[in-house]
Design a binder for these strands. Structure first.
Lengths: 138, 138
DNA sequence: TCCTCATATATGTTAAAGTGCATATAACAA
DNA sequence: TTGTTATATGCACTTTAACATATATGAGGA
């Protein structure tokens, strides 16, 4: 299930793109995705918040739009996130089909490192014009 | 405790070297270290085997000596491994002071991906001249 | 239609990571 | 001492990843 896109690309597309060996595929792919600060924080933030649009993640992490967009695209191609369009916004959330152990690793990381999302969470709640979407719950 | 070397370098040396931001330090450093196949497999192998010398890890992962040596050195500088010299061999093992959550992440990764160490374990047990050291247990 | 906002992506550039090869160091044995 | 084995590291090179900037796409409103 990991690595399948709604575009119909096969499992392992991203792994192949990243020239990973067969065996270490999933786990290595997962950790490569966690090995960049914006991607790590995006995943943890989405774990905590459930669903966010690109502009909210941009604001929470205080980073440029193309930067965040490209990192989210990578996470989506890797099968860690799914997106849906809601009007002019694109909402991202964790792929519910993600391996349980990966979800647990994210959760543990979040619990053990509460400081990581301190500033992002504050910036998020400080957004004056925070959009409201349907079914924003986790 | 993580990031302290026996050489006395301060916590965060590796993080600073890698130009990481303050906040995401430990967790990000950890995942950066897992994001390379030889380092990931070395950590998992040491988790499983307890203690191994460089030549055993080389053989298990079927990689060159300088390559393995460098990756192990990075893991040691990051505080994830400790080493001890036993005669002409240098033995590596997981740093017992590693954060519990990191140890748990490694363990879970190992349990959920048994195939990862299949070949390395086989190559290890196939070593004809496998050295025996004192206190090889985990 | 035209305009605006939100998001995605193409392109060129820079920085970082990984690697092979050669060599250095360290322990041991003869 | 010399030679051998095990490990570490300096250096040059290749590959990969991240980035800024500019532009494209797509939805909604006037």
């Amino acid at each position: 299930m990991i690595g399948v896109e709604k575009t119909g690309n096969p499992v392992g597309y991203e792994a192949q793109r990243q020239n990973l060996s067969e065996g270490a595929g999933d786990a290595l792919m997962f950790y490569k995705n966690l090995a960049e600060e914006n991607r790590l924080l995006s995943l943890l933030l989405l774990k905590q918040e459930g669903e966010l649009c690109v502009c909210e993640i941009m604001e929470a992490l205080n980073q440029s739009q193309p930067k965040i967009s490209r990192h989210l695209a990578q996470l989506r191609r890797s099968g860690l996130l799914v997106d849906r369009r809601q009007g002019q916004w694109v909402l991202y959330r964790l792929n519910p089909d993600m391996h349980t152990w990966m979800q647990d690793v994210l959760e543990r990381t979040l619990i053990e490192n509460p400081h990581l999302l301190e500033e992002p969470s504050r910036r998020l709640s400080d957004m004056s014009t925070r959009p409201i979407f349907c079914s924003t719950s986790a």
